[in-house]
Design a protein around this nucleic acid. Structure first.
Lengths: 170, 170
DNA sequence: GATTCTTCTTGAACAATGTTCATTTTCGAG
DNA sequence: CTCGAAAATGAACATTGTTCAAGAAGAATC
């Protein structure tokens, strides 16, 4: 993304882009804000009747979003601020909220665990899913072949749940 | 990293940097090559007597390396080539080899599984560990608090192994 | 040692891109 | 219509990757 391209696409001058977004970081962050909102909307649309199906649905929805908007997700997770400026709190909170969406179904599947522990488990599980997907979708690093990604991701979720003591179909 | 800084640090001219590395990509890739070699060396130094300890050791070694060289790892995984040039095969192979180091111990723990399946399981497990660590070490995204990362990573490995049918101490 | 050819080194100049700001345009208030 | 505030503009600047003609250094030959 280039400031001049944005200006041309918007049909305005370079200066106007700066009036609107402040600087390049502001431009990127505006995009990232929309990205995390779109991601969250998609994750929240996953049916929540059955917690097990929901967990699979969340992983699958994340995979779908990552497949369709690989570059947007990269911008969200890889962008560094200029001059070590702090990363905006609101985006941080939004990402954390998205990652916490695994909390509710996990809580239902693990009613006897310490809820704080489940909260961390859910973020960790989402981080793991994120890692598998982001490396799997890099064409260059065939950690997990993309065509198997969907199936393997489901397998991973099942395996991890089994390790947590959740018996399938319970 | 800037070409001019490298030239000054090396005590030579800008042009000499280009003679040596070709272009900026070449410079980055040289660094990335050393990074993956250092990472591999560290992972290979993990004792392999006990497969369970080895898996924990590999995860822990990766965490240690990521903690000490966060920016090097980011360069390795996040760098994009200019003009959509292909990513060098040799680095790709080296990263895949590093990721495959979980294969041997997993194979010992899962002797009855299809070896091809275990190969994929090991890469998936490493991808998951990578995701947990890389998001956990971003100060901005406290998916898993850094001070708990070591302990939680061990817990994750145990949980996943349990899900795969490995009973602790067997 | 002098000459010539090859190779390496240099850094000024160029290109691309984020950024600034004096100037101009726009537009509402009086 | 006039004036002043606000917004828009784009030329000019700063940074940084890149090129390449010119020069320096070295090797080979006589």
């Amino acid at each position: 993304m280039k400031v001049r391209d944005v200006a041309e696409a918007a049909g305005c001058s370079i200066g106007s882009v700066y009036n609107e977004f402040g600087d390049f970081d502001g431009l990127i962050l505006t995009v990232n804000r929309e990205t995390v909102q779109a991601l969250t909307a998609r994750l929240k649309a996953v049916p929540s009747d059955d917690p097990l199906r929901q967990l699979h649905g969340l992983a699958d929805a994340y995979l779908g979003f990552a497949t369709e908007h690989a570059n947007l997700l990269r911008s969200l997770f890889e962008h560094r601020m200029e001059d070590d400026r702090p990363f905006p709190e609101d985006i941080l909170a939004m990402v954390m909220d998205a990652f916490a969406l695994m909390h509710a179904p996990l809580l239902r599947l693990l009613p006897d665990r310490d809820p704080d522990d489940v909260a961390l488990l859910s973020r960790m599980m989402f981080s793991a899913v994120h890692g598998i997907i982001s490396l799997g979708l890099e064409e260059r690093m065939v950690a997990v072949p993309p065509e198997q990604l969907r199936e393997r991701l489901a397998q991973f979720v099942d395996t991890h749940l089994a390790g947590l003591g959740v018996t399938r179909g319970a």
